[in-house]
């Protein structure tokens, strides 16, 4: 895959987020009231919009170059898409760990794309953000497949390819609406090593005919295995988690070739706010494996499980660290990059 310049200039080491951001307390309260039938749909939607305003402003205040809408409207990354694709059914929650549940969907008939799923989210985010580029996240076909029950398709593989067609259609709609950067989330990708061959092919289907920037996010996974497929996956950027693993496994990045890394420098499962030196050191470490022009900087994963003030503080530290490194790079004549897809 040869990367193309997309004509958008960004500061070197663009800072971004993976997607989710903590919902404001008042939004959680309104969602509870909505579920109890005490406020109507209109109030709920207005609250979602207001929450997006709030969290985009927080990301921008922290200095993030490429914000998301914080996934304010999404309860869960698979459930949200399954609710909006025809052919899924929900029987009830299943436990994921401890006392935490998710509504695992079941595929009960042929899947159909009825209407755009996140295009309106993108359009609203575009209106709200002051930045040149915003990020839209979308759950990938393999992860939706792996985290669903399959009652209809003869095989898991066939289900994944069907979903890939649907996700591809959605990304094309996003491109038509003006989106520049879409990230496909595939945390399940390396879960079943024996399925990787066809899983990669299915995921590539979502990129078919797409001209904008496509990233893929894979976290808490086997990166040694994933790196064998860097070349075959038709994505310009791999957003990976490294803070959680103490910046080990960086050697796998040698296999990136011309592609980019979305470098995770913030641990989202710890409430300790990193210090600026940690971010600077992490960046200096990754430069041994990847050129600065091919690095975006982000937290390891979505921030939604953190208290909001900690999430913001972590983003501020991340940006401060990046700014220090940018000054160092400026002396080498490296200031800007052109976004590639």
């Amino acid at each position: 895959m040869v990367l193309r310049e997309l004509g958008v200039e960004l500061l070197i080491l663009p800072t971004t987020v993976i997607g989710s951001y903590p919902r404001p307390r008042w939004l959680r309260h309104i969602i509870r009231l909505y579920r109890a039938g005490r406020v109507d749909e209109k109030i709920l939607q207005e609250s979602f919009d207001d929450a997006v305003y709030t969290v985009v402003k927080e990301q921008e205040d922290a200095g993030v170059d490429i914000p998301s809408d914080g996934e304010m409207r999404r309860d869960e990354m698979v459930e949200y898409f399954a609710e909006r694709i025809k052919g899924f059914r929900f029987y009830g929650p299943v436990r994921v760990w401890g006392n935490n549940f998710f509504n695992k969907p079941a595929v009960v008939s042929k899947l159909e794309y009825e209407k755009p799923i996140v295009v309106n989210e993108y359009l609203f985010l575009r209106k709200v953000s002051t930045r040149k580029v915003v990020k839209v996240t979308i759950t990938g076909p393999y992860t939706i497949t792996d985290w669903s029950y399959n009652e209809y398709y003869p095989s898991k593989e066939e289900l994944a390819f069907e979903l890939a067609k649907i996700i591809n259609r959605e990304i094309i709609e996003l491109e038509k609406a003006g989106a520049l950067f879409v990230q496909v989330d595939e945390p399940a990708l390396t879960t079943h090593p024996d399925e990787m061959e066809w899983a990669v092919e299915a995921i590539n289907e979502v990129a078919r005919g797409v001209s904008i920037k496509l990233g893929i996010h894979v976290c808490y996974s086997n990166y040694e295995l994933l790196s064998k497929y860097f070349d075959r996956l038709n994505f310009s950027q791999f957003a990976l988690e490294f803070a959680n693993r103490g910046f080990r496994d960086l050697e796998v990045l040698k296999r990136l070739g011309d592609k980019e890394i979305g470098f995770g420098v913030i641990d989202v499962h710890s409430r300790r706010v990193e210090n600026v030196d940690e971010v600077v050191n992490a960046l200096n470490k990754v430069f041994k494996y990847v050129d600065p022009e091919r690095i975006y900087v982000n937290p390891d994963c979505g921030l939604k499980l953190l208290p909001r003030e900690i999430a913001k503080a972590k983003l501020e530290v991340m940006v401060k660290g990046v700014n220090i490194v940018r000054e160092q790079l400026k002396k080498r004549g490296l200031e800007k990059i052109i976004m590639r897809g």
Binding site: V96, W97, G98, K104, D146, W147, A188, T191, H192
Partner: peptide
């Protein structure tokens, strides 16, 4: 948390 074999279920 660690994944319980190939399930989307995690244990300590």
């Amino acid at each position: 948390l660690k994944r319980f074999y190939d399930n989307n279920f995690f244990f300590r």
